[in-house]
Design a protein around this nucleic acid. Structure first.
Length: 666
DNA sequence: ATTGGTAGTATTTTT
DNA sequence: TACTACCAAT
């Protein structure tokens, strides 16, 4: 018996949840109960007799997929719930490709390149194919390559970037590897060109639900189209064109704006009743987003009238801005007994978090920093993962390149360069090339010996690893220890504190592998897949941390906080200077809109007269968006007034109390 | 082969 | 300010 209850939903949500068949577009504004509606729809479908195994829910993040699974599990009995597929686009593609990639000339154990790996290969390729005068910026190239893949670019070798593109793709394939875009490209190709494979998956999924549809790119749309079997297709997409903020990453707002073009005669349902924010906040948001052309049009409303005014404060400089905001948070907390985790400070650029961190640390206020450099981007973590990848598959050239001289083993760049050249010519993996007797004749005796010893080490561990029931974590850990990895790690750190931290990072991965072995039998390969696609562990850790949230506007999408501070509302920051030259101010407006709509109870927006950029103070004009939100409930206040305002006696008493508490904690 | 110094550059980042 | 990429010295 399902726990699904229709009366928990408002009429529009109900209509969406109980839509019979054919395409369905749910335009779900911020805070309108989108996930609840999707989950309700899934439960409804099951209650109507749709087999759970025929339902596919696709999300962008592992976190979203996980949450969806959890919520489905709360609504259906566990057997049925576990049969429903809830997965990210990329994980779905990996699943499709792991069984049939050989039809495209890959081996099914292809390796997956994350952005770091990708950048590494791009740099290498640039050095190879471009002359010194036409050097391409690797970051830019990475961008172009991604766009190119999403749009089926057929590059010619005439231009520098075209040559890089082609060479990069050839090298990837030679390495039996795919980058994140390839996962989509190849999965689409597979389904497109192999009717057998296509039918296999089509017959499996009879109902598809896609979350955050405004963020889909060309390939993701094609993937959805290819998987949709029935006519009319049972494709239900949920999204909000006003929250499309990933255009620079290839997301096509047109997918949602022109949904009818891709799926005929859809039912379109708007969710406009907001359960998150006060009407004051929604008013500001609505006034802002109205200025965007090219949108479906939506007006968020809430039955909860009034609420605190939205404060707009101009502060002298970025340092004062941080102090002001942190002080406000402290005052609000003590005055109203609000826990730290009810506050979020949002900003455009990661660099803005520094002053805030300093300030919060000084006052001993707990905080969590979302985004920025990920645990998985830490050097030692990547090194350990690369070591594992090498042990599984020595032909994983990128992994091998990463660890071949980490720790230093006497196989330096000249040797590697030479081997790379040979391997490209012979179409052999780097490992094969290096260990071939004829290669060893071409290098010094010392180098040859270094290669031999490294190759032997790797091979012997590999054999042990392949033994059934092998303790992979132990083998890897032993290899790292004996090869001097940990010693080298410590040696390369400036402070003992950093050394401890780095070693901890490496150990953490080993521990994760141990955990994985306990709960899964997919082996080391399965573990690496999970690690590549999935930063769950990382996110979990961040979520555990309690305190004031520091977050970029991009990362804040989908989250909500009772009290939000939006910093740096300055012309040139948001909208970012670059967006103005690139003609993407609309997207910046949506970004600002996302920021505003995160707030439940109170919202304070600040902007500085001066901001230190690249070491020097620059004058800043307020963001034009500030004018657009002006209206009822938006209060422009002077900084001096607030700072000098007399503090109520009870607040003073409370401040002392909290101060004592903070000092006591130390 | 590895180290250290300096010069040039500078959003956002679900996978 | 801070990161990185490249070069020169050991």
């Amino acid at each position: 018996m399902s726990k699904f209850r229709l009366w928990d939903l408002n009429p529009e949500q109900q209509r969406a949840a109980t839509h019979e068949s054919g395409p369905l577009l749910i335009l779900a504004g911020a805070g309108t109960g989108k996930t609840r509606t999707i989950v309700a729809r899934i439960t409804w479908l099951v209650s109507q007799g749709v087999p759970p195994s025929g339902i596919l829910a696709v999300t962008f993040t592992n976190k979203a997929a996980r949450e969806m699974k959890e919520r489905i599990a709360g609504m259906l009995d566990s057997e049925k719930a576990s049969e429903i597929t809830a997965s990210t686009f990329h994980a779905l593609c990996v699943r499709i490709l792991r069984t049939d990639a050989d039809k495209l000339g890959y081996k099914n154990n292809f390796s997956i390149f994350d952005q770091g790996d990708q950048l590494g290969l791009i740099k290498k390729v640039i050095n190879r194919v471009t002359s010194h005068d036409e050097k391409v910026d690797p970051g830019l190239a990475q961008n172009m390559i991604s766009k190119g893949k999403n749009n089926g670019w057929n590059a010619n070798d005439e231009t520098a970037i075209g040559a890089v593109y082609n060479r990069y793709n050839r090298e990837l394939r030679a390495l039996n590897a795919m980058d994140f875009d390839d996962l989509l490209v190849q999965a689409v190709k597979l389904l497109d060109e192999h009717p057998g494979v296509r039918e296999k998956w089509r017959s499996r999924f009879r109902h598809m639900l896609v979350d955050e549809f405004q963020d889909t790119n060309n390939l993701q749309l094609r993937l959805v189209s290819l998987l949709a079997s029935d006519d009319p297709p049972n494709v239900c997409v949920v999204g909000d064109d006003d929250q499309s903020i990933y255009g620079w990453r290839g997301a096509e707002v047109s997918n949602i704006l022109e949904f009818e073009k891709h799926f005929r005669n859809p039912e379109i349902i708007r969710l406009e009743q907001n359960y998150r924010s006060t009407n004051t906040i929604l008013g500001a948001a609505n006034r802002l987003i109205k200025n965007n052309p090219r949108r479906r049009g939506k007006n968020l409303w809430s039955p909860q009238e009034g609420g605190d005014p939205v404060h707009v404060v101009c502060v002298p400089d970025d340092k004062k801005e941080a102090e002001f905001v942190v002080n406000e948070i402290g005052a609000l907390r003590t005055a109203n007994n609000i826990p730290w985790e009810h506050f979020a400070i949002a900003y455009r650029m990661n660099a803005q978090s520094r002053l805030l961190e300093e300030c919060l640390r000084r006052l001993r206020i707990p905080y969590r920093l979302v985004g920025g450099k990920s645990f998985f981007d830490r050097r030692e973590v990547k090194d350990v993962l690369a070591t594992m990848a090498c042990l599984i598959n020595p032909s994983d050239d990128v992994a091998l390149l990463r660890i071949i001289n980490t720790p230093p083993r006497g196989i330096g760049t000249t040797t590697v360069e030479l081997a790379l050249e040979h391997s490209a010519k012979a179409h052999k993996s780097l490992f094969e090339t290096l260990t071939a007797p004829e290669f060893r004749e071409q290098v010094s005796r010392k180098t040859a010996e270094a290669i031999r010893s490294f190759g032997d080490e790797l091979a012997s561990r590999r054999i042990r690893l392949l033994t059934p029931g092998a303790d992979a974590a132990h083998i890897v850990s032993q290899f790292l220890g004996e090869s001097g990895f940990f010693d080298d790690l410590k040696r390369s750190c400036k402070t003992p504190e950093e050394a401890l931290n780095r070693e901890g990072g490496a150990r953490e991965i080993l521990r994760a592998l141990t955990d994985h072995q306990k709960r899964s039998n997919s082996g080391l390969q399965g573990f690496l897949d999970e690690m590549m696609l999935d930063r769950e562990r990382d996110e979990d850790k961040k979520e555990e941390a309690k305190g004031v949230t520091l977050i970029t506007l991009h990362a804040a999408k989908g989250l909500e906080f009772p009290h939000v501070f939006l910093l740096g509302a300055e012309d040139g920051l948001i909208p970012h200077e670059r967006s103005k030259s690139e003609g993407t101010v609309d997207e910046e407006r949506r970004l600002f809109y996302v920021g505003i709509t995160r707030a439940m109870k109170s919202l304070t927006i600040t902007h500085c007269l001066h901001r230190t950029k690249f070491g020097t103070a620059m004058y800043c004009r307020p963001s034009p968006f500030l004018q657009e939100i002006e209206g009822e409930g938006v209060l422009v206040e002077s900084y001096e007034e607030i700072v000098n305002k007399p503090v109520a006696e009870q607040d003073i008493a409370a401040s002392f109390a909290s101060l004592r508490e903070m000092l006591a904690r130390d």
